[in-house]
Amino acid sequence: MSAERRQALRGKYLKLGTGELAAAASFAVVAIALVMPRLAGPDDSSALWSALVPLLAVLVQAGIYWLAARSWVERAPMPAPFAAAYRVFRIADAVLLGVGLVGILVWWPEGIGTALLVVAVWLFAVVEYLNYFAVRLAYPLDRWFIRVGRWRTPRLVQDLRTSAPASRARNHSDPN
């Protein structure tokens, strides 16, 4: 592809990566500075963190993915070690979401407002997970209803599919 297209994608990936990392930092800061002091007790805090930890994990992984993908976009497949890590994340994040849901149920918040907040955070984590590992859900608002129904494959999953397995990657570097 053209150098202009590669540069445009690198710029887009920079924005996506820094945006996801900024979102993760924002959620953590808001939780610690604004929400935690207003919670009724330790069970509410535990429920909040049960919802928040999976969200933070997915957002940080997504940010790192977009920033790293700038190095291979339009040039090469995703490096095999990186792909292996994200294949593990795909499973680990699903487990983390399940454990988070159990934590929410065990430490169910006292107030309805806190319960709604905790459930909303957990559901957002599920949506982010699906957006990166199952089906693309993120589109501009003016085209969202048209495009989301197409059930497109997320860019991360496309990169995972085209990544060279570790053994094949080693063979490519072997001169014999």
Rank of each mutant, 00 (worst) to 15 (best):
S2I: 08
A3Q: 09
A3I: 05
R5A: 13
R5N: 08
R6T: 14
Q7T: 12
G11M: 04
K12P: 07
Y13P: 10
K15Y: 15
K15D: 15
L16A: 10
G17M: 14
A22H: 11
A23M: 11
A24P: 10
A24Q: 10
A25P: 06
S26G: 14
A28D: 07
A28M: 09
V29T: 13
I32S: 03
A33I: 02
A33W: 06
A33H: 03
L34P: 02
V35Y: 05
V35E: 09
V35M: 12
M36L: 12
P37M: 07
P37E: 03
D43R: 15
S45V: 13
S45I: 11
L48Q: 04
W49V: 06
S50R: 00
A51K: 01
P54M: 12
L55M: 03
V60P: 00
Q61M: 13
A62P: 00
G63K: 06
I64R: 04
W66M: 06
R70K: 12
R70T: 10
R70I: 08
S71P: 01
W72V: 05
E74I: 08
R75V: 14
M78Q: 11
A80Y: 02
P81I: 12
A85L: 15
F89G: 01
R90Q: 15
I91S: 11
I91G: 01
A92V: 15
A92R: 09
A92D: 12
A94N: 06
V95T: 05
V95A: 13
V95R: 00
L96A: 07
L97W: 04
G98T: 07
G98I: 06
V99K: 01
V99A: 08
V99M: 03
V99P: 01
L101V: 02
L101C: 10
V102M: 03
V102Q: 00
G103W: 00
I104R: 00
V106A: 00
W107R: 05
W108K: 01
E110H: 09
E110D: 14
G111N: 13
G113Y: 13
L116H: 01
L116M: 12
L117Y: 02
V118D: 00
V118K: 00
V118L: 02
V121W: 06
F124Y: 10
F124G: 04
A125D: 02
V126L: 14
V127N: 05
E128W: 01
E128H: 04
Y129D: 06
Y129G: 07
Y129L: 08
L130K: 04
L130R: 09
Y132H: 11
Y132W: 15
F133A: 08
F133Q: 07
L137Q: 11
L137G: 01
P140K: 13
P140F: 11
L141I: 12
D142K: 11
R143I: 11
R143Y: 04
W144N: 09
I146C: 04
R147A: 14
W151V: 15
W151Q: 14
R152P: 06
T153L: 12
Q158W: 09
D159G: 07
T162C: 11
A166I: 15
S167L: 13
R168V: 12
R168N: 07
A169Q: 08
H172G: 08
N176W: 06
N176A: 12
